Amino acid sequence: MNERLRVAVLAGGPSPEHEVSLQSAQAVLDAMPKQRFDPFPVVIDRQGRWPLELRKGVADVVFPVMHGPFGEDGVIQGHLETLGLPYVGCGVLASAVAMDKTAMRRAFLAEGIPVTPHVWFSEHEWRSTTDRWGLVKSLDWPMYVKPANMGSSIGISRVTSVEELREAVELAFTYDRVAIVEQGVTARELICGVLGDHDTPEASVTGELNVHGEWLDYEAKYLSHAEIATIPATLPAWVSEEVRELSLRAYRAIGGYGLSRVDFLYEEDTGRLYVLEINTMPGFTPRSVYARAWGASGVPYPDLLTRLIDLALARSGS
């Protein structure tokens, strides 16, 4: 019998998404097939301190189930590269581009991928101008204000007035030095999972997020017991197919590897699809829409984990 592979499941870290990461990591630890893998947790604390020195010999492969800054922005990926350890998911560049909403949109626009009208500006630009309205005047109400580098709907506000805009931008700047403001659209929110290497990635069935308020916030995603998604979504066949095709294009636009979840806005009245963002390490909690989308596509959760680890090993030549 072959010796089981030691899989270090990274979780926690100084990101505001620390708690979500712990939930995701526990799900991965519980579901990983034990006949082939010997998983163990490595929980980084909120100050960025590690409980052990991760190196070859301690782990054969790393599964970084970390969301947001420090875990999903290329920092952890770069560290693992220096250690020479195979790891699950996108590399340094793809992680950094996808995490930064301004860089991500530049990559999408360069490839002709549709995105909603938007602007971005630095904290310095915001504080040094006497015409703050001028920074966003090309957009209409409502607008969505977001920190450029953050996930899980943290720091996001929907605004319908100049006063709300000021408060929302100040909130965004508590998380990042750049804010992005997006044009609000009346649309259904769709998702699609991508799985695979650079050359032959696959797209899952399309899902739809069940948005009961103005938008799907942190509480709805992680604290509510309401059903947050319908998978597969009830859509015209051409919409589902276009979502899948655009998902693969977005994945390639950032140089994705391993996995990503692509989020969309679908305007039924016009038939327009907009790529909202791409997440290189989506939630892996038991309610994860990424895992559910692949389950509906014929890849059960334990098999999904196995495929992701195999992709990590293939990239490293292990």
Rank of each mutant, 00 (worst) to 15 (best):
V162F: 07
A110C: 06
M281C: 12
V75P: 06
R249M: 07
Y274R: 08
S128P: 08
L223H: 13
W141M: 01
Y251F: 14
R36G: 11
E241P: 09
T306D: 15
S122H: 07
V181P: 00
R36S: 14
V145P: 02
V75C: 14
Q77M: 11
G295H: 01
V178D: 02
Q183A: 05
F40G: 08
E19Q: 06
V58Q: 05
G12A: 10
G57S: 12
G68E: 03
I44M: 10
E164T: 10
E163G: 01
F37Q: 02
V7E: 02
R49Y: 05
P201H: 04
S153V: 05
T186P: 04
G74I: 04
R261F: 13
G283A: 07
G71H: 03
A27R: 09
R315W: 07
L54G: 06
H118E: 03
E123S: 14
D303I: 06
E125H: 13
L248W: 00
L235W: 06
G57C: 11
E268Q: 14
L190E: 00
G193T: 09
G57V: 09
T200C: 07
I113E: 05
H124P: 04
E3M: 12
P302I: 01
A8M: 13
R49D: 10
M32C: 12
E53C: 09
L235I: 07
K137F: 05
L85Q: 04
W215L: 00
L165E: 11
I44Y: 08
G207Y: 04
S260A: 15
D197C: 04
I228S: 05
E19L: 01
Y274W: 15
E167V: 13
I231W: 12
P302A: 03
R272I: 06
L276C: 14
L265H: 00
L259F: 10
T160F: 05
K146H: 12
S122W: 01
E227A: 11
G151A: 02
T116V: 15
E219K: 11
L276K: 09
F63P: 07
W215I: 01
P236S: 02
V211M: 03
S297A: 13
V169E: 00
V97I: 11
D303V: 10
R292I: 02
M1E: 07
L216I: 10
T280E: 15
I231A: 05
E72C: 11
